[in-house]
Design a protein around this nucleic acid. Structure first.
Length: 688
DNA sequence: AAAAAAG
């Protein structure tokens, strides 16, 4: 297996130069007969023998440098790194025709990468100044095989009527009416309806309108009386809540279900369809118990019921006093209740479930089986599932020290890495497993991971974990955990998408969110730049050229890769992270951003959720996301823990409408600006 | 249609 089937074509073919004809290239462009065949890029494809492309003899015959590793290492590196791509002597990938770079320095000018693929630190002096003054005398750059274009021979922009996107009044005048879409009723019934449940059709629901005004007001403001489910429960206070629990009328998810004033959550979901409108209505029941920031003033973690060891570790982790979502959920988690928690991105959800989970495990083992607590080969008693490996790792970094402080052990179980180490840890025995659904389910099915003693299960990014590709493996895993075990579901965008899981696995869950934590109160400034599609890459370069850490989102792996090259080529050190990279590359890319060795990370949505990197001041969406939740999560990589942040979304004019709708659904007020490359406003954003 | 998650 010389080359990984999935990753290699893209990787191996990727000129590290963000080059022209690359724009449309992806693995699909490989002809079945010619692995790596590049009709549009290769100088003379016909002179290249299929299957011998990576053959050493041929390479030598073609006079290429011989740096490419052999054997297994070769195939691996071909997949792994853009720096491993074959280059001819001038540093240009061997398939790439010589191109005029308009006088810009080419690869020849860049220092060679060392053995590990790193280039020596770049000095900012040896590359062309990218100041705005210098920009004009640089010829326009073309990245996708278009003829070079100068801004001067385009139709003069100034002649066009001014666009009003940056005028608030303009936007205010536009009613949010664009999403009262009619098509719901003729869509097909949901495919994963279970037999046990009656088939649902949209007909038994009141017609849903997406018109904001027609919907029952959804507000998380403090000025609305706390929602109660038909009973006048006394206001919650942290001191007297526990004893009162028994007096409360039983509140169960299911018997609250047929509410008339809210749309039923069982709207059919559709694998195909013009747009996933269904996911847009936030589950209203989640507003059940709102905690305000003021409510938790003066409360410490120990007041919430956490032990001194844990409190000390939390302080070391930088959490001296609980955030609202933590204050809200910790007591109920400790009490053994199922909990649904919604807290804005960066609001401290990991500690909200991690700390009480450890404390509760400790409490549960304090009794009879104290002696067996560290028994060799013991089965884990808690499981935390996350949608990406990076997130699982990150959760472990928070939970592990907390667990360690009370003598409990965690281990990470996720894919993309060898089994041995994970199996070894499981054989020794662990208390808390943190992982991703694939490998966890794999090991569980193999009998290597015994979940039957798992009495606490956490779904982080729970709404995502309940979506199409995840729901099934997640449910299989949940089915293996201990009957009646405690379930904790957390997400910044927790919505009705979790209803199936909740109905099936949760009992009388406590539902929390933090009131006032909506987008309006966020510390994130949302900017939308309307531009010509063909200007996107240049504008991206200008945006990314400022100081500070930036996270760039692209919609596909190929485009993420391409943009990383583009930025690299433009003299901006950039890494990419996406699912086509092997785990060590992914980890390294993220680590490079965290450590500041690169300022720019170009990512697919693999990095959209949960990933915390300190001090990302700017999130750039080279592609707007498809879904409003993705927007919220992506933008939530900045503005964390109350810090300021800016999100810039690049929107081609033909996607304007769609983006407007998306932002409206996300309840985000963005500032729209029409730009062309070189605009001072871009520079201003880049400088933030 | 894409991305993620097992290999």
């Amino acid at each position: 297996m010389p080359i990984n089937k999935k990753g290699a074509p893209v990787r191996a073919s990727r000129p590290s130069t963000g080059s022209s004809a690359n724009a449309v290239r992806k693995s699909g462009s490989v002809s079945p007969k010619h692995r790596g065949y590049r009709p549009d890029a290769a100088p003379a494809p016909s002179d290249r023998e299929p299957k011998k492309r990576w053959n050493a003899d041929e390479r030598a015959a073609r006079g290429h440098s011989e740096q490419r590793p052999r054997g297994a290492a070769a195939s691996n590196s071909a997949r792994v790194g853009r720096e491993r791509v074959e280059r001819s002597a001038d540093g240009r990938p061997n398939w790439e025709p010589k191109r005029a770079y308009d006088g810009r320095p080419t690869h020849d000018a860049r220092p060679a990468r060392d053995e590990r693929g790193n280039r020596p630190a770049r000095s900012f002096d040896d590359r062309p100044s990218r100041g705005s003054d210098a920009r004009d005398d640089r010829p326009a750059r073309s990245y996708d095989a278009r003829p070079p274009r100068s801004y001067d021979n385009r139709p003069a922009r100034d002649d066009r009527p001014a666009r009003g996107y940056d005028r608030p009044a303009d936007r205010a005048a536009r009613p949010a009416k664009s999403w009262d879409r009619p098509q719901r009723d003729d869509r097909p019934a949901r495919s994963y309806d279970r037999d046990a449940r009656p088939a649902r059709t949209s007909d038994d629901r009141p017609a849903r309108s997406y018109d904001r005004d027609a919907r029952p007001a959804r507000s998380y403001d403090n000025d609305r009386p706390a929602r109660s489910y038909g009973n006048d429960r006394p206001a919650r206070s942290f001191d007297d809540r526990r004893p009162q629990r028994d007096d409360r009328p039983a509140r169960s998810w299911s018997d609250r279900a047929p509410r008339q004033d809210a749309p039923r959550h069982e709207a059919p979901r559709h694998e195909a369809g013009p747009r996933p409108m269904v996911e847009d209505v936030v589950l209203e029941r989640l507003t059940a118990q709102a905690v305000t920031a003021g409510e938790v003033d003066g409360i410490g973690f120990s007041d919430l019921g956490l032990g001194s060891n844990i409190v000390r570790v939390l302080a070391e982790l930088g959490a001296a006093t609980p955030f609202p979502i933590q204050a809200a959920t910790i007591p109920d988690v400790l009490a053994g209740r199922d909990v649904l928690g919604r807290g804005r991105t960066g609001s401290g959800k990991t500690i909200a479930f991690g700390a009480p989970l450890v404390e509760r495990l400790l409490a549960l083992s304090a009794g009879a089986d104290k002696g067996t607590r560290r028994e060799f080969g013991r089965a884990p008693r808690a499981l935390i599932l996350a949608p990406t490996r990076e997130l699982a790792l990150q959760i472990d970094r928070t939970v592990q020290p907390i667990a360690q402080s009370v003598g409990l052990f965690t281990t990470q179980i996720y894919g993309g890495v060898p089994y041995a180490r994970q199996l070894g840890a499981l054989q020794r025995g662990v208390d808390i497993v943190i992982g991703t659904p694939g490998r966890v389910g794999d090991l569980a099915a193999q009998g290597k991971l015994d979940l039957s003693k798992t009495i606490i299960t956490v779904l982080d990014e729970a709404d995502h974990m309940c979506e199409l590709g995840f729901a099934e493996p997640v449910q299989e895993i949940l089915d293996r955990t201990a009957q009646g075990g405690q379930k904790l579901l957390f997400s910044a965008t927790l919505d009705k998408g979790v209803a199936d899981i909740v109905e099936r696995y949760l009992v009388d869950p406590a539902v929390f969110e933090v009131s006032g934590e909506d987008q309006a109160s966020s510390t994130i400034d949302h900017q939308v730049l309307l531009l010509d599609q063909r200007d996107k890459q240049q504008v991206l370069i200008e945006l990314a050229s400022g100081p500070g850490k930036k996270l760039v989102f692209a919609r596909t792996r190929a485009f993420a890769e391409q943009l990383a090259d583009l930025l690299d080529e433009a003299g901006i050190r950039a890494e990419s992270i996406h699912g086509d990279l092997n785990q060590s590359r992914r980890t390294r890319a993220l680590e490079k951003l965290t450590s500041g060795r690169v300022d720019v990370l170009v990512a697919t949505d693999v990095a959209a959720r949960g990933i915390h990197v300190d001090d990302i001041a700017l999130v750039i969406q080279a592609d707007a996301p498809d879904e409003y939740k993705a927007y919220l999560h992506r933008s939530g990589r900045t503005g964390r823990a109350g810090k300021e942040g800016t999100v810039v979304t690049l929107v081609p004019r033909n996607r304007r409408r769609r983006t407007e709708e998306l932002l409206a659904r996300a309840e985000i007020e963005a500032n729209w600006t029409s730009v062309v490359p070189g605009d001072a406003f871009i520079e201003e954003l880049a400088a933030r």
